[in-house]
Amino acid sequence: MTDVAHQNTETNNSVHDLVMGAGENQFLTFVLEQEEYAVDILRVQEIRGWESVTRIPNTPEYIRGVLNLRGAIVPIVDLRMRFNMKSIEYGVTTVIVVLKVMKEDGSGSRTMGIVVDGVSEVYSVPESEIKEAPDFGTKVRTEFIKGLATIDDKMVIIIDIDKMLNSDELAVVDSVSESTGQIKE
């Protein structure tokens, strides 16, 4: 696990020196089924090797479970399952990318992890290079996509992690356990 993280900081630095300029955002890319996806690097807290997690009962399959991240309980989402891709056996490059996700109502952030096939590169992409995604042709639901960028003739899909990790089953909204009533005066 430390290996991967270390590697990442290395690439991070070299790329940073080469291509960082004004008006650009840096993205960390990772691979899912041969395609490259990108997330805002400022949201990435750390990258860990895969380790077994504790399953939470009665949750969708793509929520692999929770992990102890230095005392905090962090839910882990398998992105392949989330995007309805076929699952593969976790291998040596399989990593958990721990991300900071802003809550939709703006009431702060929470920490979540995503399981991906492997991390790839760090790119600097000028704002102007990010193009709107077409509303078909990818396996990922378009509402989760912030845009597309072309880097060295490769297409990279930039993911809106706030939308993706706040949607549906992952949403914080819950009414089930709010059953304790208030005392009537």
């Binding site: 009962p57 009665n58 309980i73 949403a171 089930v176």
Partner: peptide, 27 residues
């Protein structure tokens, strides 16, 4: 006791989670 809903959400039948001696999480 660690709350699940800081990073996740409340679940029926589960009041929280904790970390066991070996570092793993138990519900």
């Amino acid at each position: 006791i660690k709350s699940l809903d800081t990073n996740f959400k409340k679940m029926a039948g589960i009041s929280g989670a904790t970390i066991l001696g070996d570092g793993s999480v138990a519900i």
